[in-house]
């Protein structure tokens, strides 16, 4: 049975996620928002850029801003290595790159498999966590890319 057939039969939407690793955790983002995955080349720093901006890259003649995902998620920085990747994503606002430790795979999840993320403490700080699913005994943290930055921050990014 195809995904759409399964979906219509159960009313349980199936989504595909590209998974990547940061520190010790696995994150997932909607495959429909991923344009491509790049090996890390030169990222040119931008003077005066916000702390969550690593710099810019030249992607076939287009300038793409790269977000420091570890910093955004409050994780310590690390050296880039052969596994590091820049995932080019398209949010509601613009095309940006996010630097991740590695890209793992594409997985399918039913919407019902995603638990609502704990919204404790400062909701602002984890607003981009859409939910959490169980995957191979580990957690898969589903990220809402559109909320990775605030509207103000997206606007600021557009100036690069």
């Amino acid at each position: 049975m195809s995904n759409s057939a399964a979906e219509s039969a159960t009313g349980d939407q199936v989504i595909q996620l590209v998974t990547f690793r940061l520190q010790d955790e696995t994150y997932g983002i909607n495959v429909m928002q991923v344009q491509e995955v790049l090996r890390v080349t030169e990222i040119a720093p931008v003077p005066g850029a916000p702390p969550y901006v690593l710099g810019i890259i030249n992607l076939r003649g287009n300038v793409v801003t790269v977000i420091d995902t570890r910093s955004r998620f409050g994780l310590p920085g690390t050296e880039r290595d052969d596994s590091s990747r820049i995932v080019i994503i398209e949010s509601d606002h613009q095309v940006v790159g996010i630097l991740v430790d590695s890209v793992a795979e594409v997985v399918e999840l039913r919407q019902s498999e995603i638990d609502q993320a704990p919204s404790v403490g400062n909701d602002e700080s984890s607003r981009y966590i859409q939910g959490v699913a169980s995957r191979d005994k580990d957690l898969l943290i589903v990220v809402d890319l559109n909320k990775l930055l605030t509207d103000e921050e997206w606007s600021e990014m557009a100036t690069f």
């Binding site: 520190q23 010790d24 955790e25 998620f73 409050g74 994780l75 993320a117 704990p118 404790v120 403490g121 400062n122 700080s125 984890s126 607003r127 981009y128 966590i129 959490v132 005994k137 580990d138 957690l139 943290i141």
Partner: peptide, 10 residues
């Protein structure tokens, strides 16, 4: 079991 750390939480 290892606990999954979710960023942005207290």
């Amino acid at each position: 079991e290892r606990l999954g750390k979710i960023p942005g939480l207290p």
